[in-house]
Design a protein around this nucleic acid. Structure first.
Length: 391
DNA sequence: GATCCACGGGAATACACGGATG
DNA sequence: CATCCGTGTATTCCCGTGGATC
């Protein structure tokens, strides 16, 4: 960078603070410690978990709600508080020795994104119970299950395991989850969380409680946006009116609303403005796909798949004309060390589970099956930033 | 030495089209 | 005209190997 540019930057900074102070609070993936807008939902969850405060295990339960209704936000917040509480009171099993005498159940939160195998599931449970970190290799799945049995059978009170994102495409579905829990002792109570409505979900035949969470009301969503904006943007960066506009457009989906805010903020920041404009918001909303896939899912993908996606979102139209040319361009990129066969398979696999969408080309050049273009089903700007941010 | 799982690589299958065939 | 066939491409499926980790 030359000296002029350095000076310019200083001048700009002295003009006033940048629009975006911190991208983190704007991220649709980030959950805050205290989601203040969902008080009643907390109450319902606490009602269900009530036996815990008597040292008893609650029954199994299923929490359902549409995309972006705050299920994960609420459960992760609640469980992190409960965990803290039970560690403070020394009530959970802490070590693998039997010295500790638990008087209240332990709490484990598991995100099924990224735990696709039997092994990784039991490993996650065990990790949530003991202090030490369980190795990822060199120990068999059966050994893991064995250790869990030993530990839990020694524990008088057991654990409550929250399992988030049940039934996602390509992930663990309801019946597989039942199988997994069948491999654990009976003093494990689960709290499953998913989008499938309770009446369609087989899990409810194993639960005493189902808790349905509704989508955000408009006003609540506006509050969420204003709160996040006040954490991530410079003061006055987001007008109340624009927050309402985003909330209206998102119709109760907090994920999409935050994604739009993120994109809009990014756009305004690039244009070197100090506040979001009407046009920023409009463009941002247009960038978020109609039926978008959660960025949480995208960012939970294995590293190499994310690398492929990172390249994909930068390709121009010509390079995305077919899966074949997309594959060629991506595997030629310096950042990609995969064989083209693998890149291609990754692309198809991600299309299969809805991370990207295959759009069949209308133009047929006579020869062979018509090619498909791959469209990301998430806002590229958000993915780009969040991906680049933690490299 | 044991274990899990990511990769590679290729085989099998599906699809679209034009032209041949009955 | 309906159906079959061959060709070229797209898509799916499968499984062994080896890297990484303990």
């Amino acid at each position: 960078m030359d000296i002029d540019a350095r000076i310019k930057r200083r001048q700009r900074q002295n003009d006033g603070p940048q629009l975006v102070r911190d991208y983190e609070p704007l991220s649709p993936v980030a959950h805050v410690e205290e989601p203040s807008e969902r008080g009643p939902v907390f109450e319902r969850l606490l009602d269900h978990l009530d036996p815990v405060f008597e040292g008893e295990l609650p029954p199994n339960a299923y929490v359902s709600g549409p995309f972006g209704s705050g299920k994960s936000a609420v459960v992760t917040a609640l469980f992190s508080h409960l965990q803290r509480l039970s560690t403070e009171t020394q009530s959970v099993i802490h070590t693998s020795t039997r010295a500790a005498r638990p008087t209240s159940p332990g709490f484990v939160y598991i995100d099924l994104r990224g735990t696709n195998s039997e092994f990784s599931f039991y490993r996650a449970v065990l990790n949530g119970i003991v202090d030490e970190t369980i190795p990822e290799h060199g120990i068999s799945t059966d050994d893991l299950r064995g250790r869990l049995h030993d530990l839990l059978c020694d524990s008088r009170t057991g654990v409550v395991v929250a399992v988030d994102h049940v039934d996602e495409p390509g992930g663990v579905d309801a019946s597989e989850l039942v199988e997994l829990f069948a491999g654990l002792p009976s003093n494990v109570s689960w709290l499953a969380i998913g989008r499938t409505p309770p009446e369609e979900c087989v899990l409810t035949t194993y639960t005493a409680t189902t808790i349905a969470i509704e989508r955000y009301r408009r006003q609540m969503l506006v509050d969420v946006l204003m709160n996040r904006a006040s954490d991530g943007l410079v003061q006055g960066g987001l007008d109340y009116e624009l927050a309402r506009e985003i909330a209206d457009w998102a119709s109760g989906n907090a994920h999409d609303a935050l994604a739009a805010l993120f994109v809009a903020a990014d756009g305004a920041a690039r244009a070197d403005r100090r506040r979001l404009s009407e046009a920023d918001v409009r463009d941002a909303c247009a960038e978020v796909p109609e039926d978008s896939v959660s960025l949480g899912r995208v960012l939970a993908l294995p590293t190499n798949k994310q690398i492929v996606l990172r390249e994909l979102v930068d390709l121009d139209e010509a390079d995305r004309a077919s899966v074949t040319t997309t594959t060629e361009t991506i595997s030629a990129a310096p950042a990609v060390e995969l064989s083209s066969g693998t890149v291609e398979r990754f692309l198809y696999e991600m299309a299969e589970v809805g991370i990207v969408e295959r759009v069949q080309s209308a133009t047929t050049d006579g020869k062979g099956r018509p090619p498909s273009r791959l469209d990301p089903r998430f806002p590229p700007t958000v993915f780009r930033r969040l991906y680049d941010l933690d490299r």
